[in-house]
Nucleic acid binder design. Sequence first.
DNA 1: TATTGTTATACTCTATAACTATA
DNA 2: TATAGTTATAGAGTATAACAATA
Lengths: 137, 137
Amino acid sequence: MSEPHDLALLIDRTLRRISAEVHTRAVIMDTERIGPFGGMVLLTLEEMEPAPMHQLVAQMARDKSQMTRVIATLERKGMIARHASPDDARVRLLSLTEPGRAFVDAVRAVMTEAVDVVFAPLTPEDRTTLAALLRRV
Amino acid sequence: MSEPHDLALLIDRTLRRISAEVHTRAVIMDTERIGPFGGMVLLTLEEMEPAPMHQLVAQMARDKSQMTRVIATLERKGMIARHASPDDARVRLLSLTEPGRAFVDAVRAVMTEAVDVVFAPLTPEDRTTLAALLRRV
DNA sequence: TATTGTTATACTCTATAACTATA
DNA sequence: TATAGTTATAGAGTATAACAATA
């Protein structure tokens, strides 16, 4: 088996395994009720902030309406702050609050642990190769 | 950026891109209303049939109750058949029907096209490497 | 006792379109 | 005219537990 579409099945399966691992140890996300997607938004924002929403949307390849909702939830929980952009009145810049920053540390720990379990069969070099390939798509 | 958890974000984003590409050209799945997941189940089953449900569940890293439902839908649409296993009365063997086989060809074509678009920046060798790495996890 | 598969239920995520306000 | 973001709504996917039948 090595047809093009297999790549899609492999990626899907891999993500499902990561999600499952995250889920079993994600007491944090459960208690705060932000969901796995909320956790990923925080992790992504951490690497981009301050960032306008459309940039986060592009980075995560999601729909903007979906992002509006999850951001609203995270803001309600006090993890994200929205500021008006000085350059463009339409734009709202997103950044993590202090509680959000502390929370994302916990999320990152869980995510790292899950990734370590799922990718245990791969050497550190393999993982670097994998990440580099995915970063290019 | 090259921390362990980034791998999860990269895989998530890649899968989302594939899904989006599939979605824009998936007239077939839409008209038959089986959803992207239904399409992936058919593709996976094609490579395993005849297979018991728990094997499909393991391969796709999904929940068994979820599989029960999607299989029921696909059976109702006449794409999958369930037979009793001769070895174990608890087990039901799944296989594609003739219409299901024709349908999976169309799904595969869409999926292949989507993968080709998303992985366009990668050479064939890169894709082989990527698939090999993912297959090992 | 453990496994295969089903049912029921609640929740999260996704897709679409119509909308506003700014550019 | 086009872009940033919001709202509303319908649909698809996921997690859990309790269950029947068989091993």
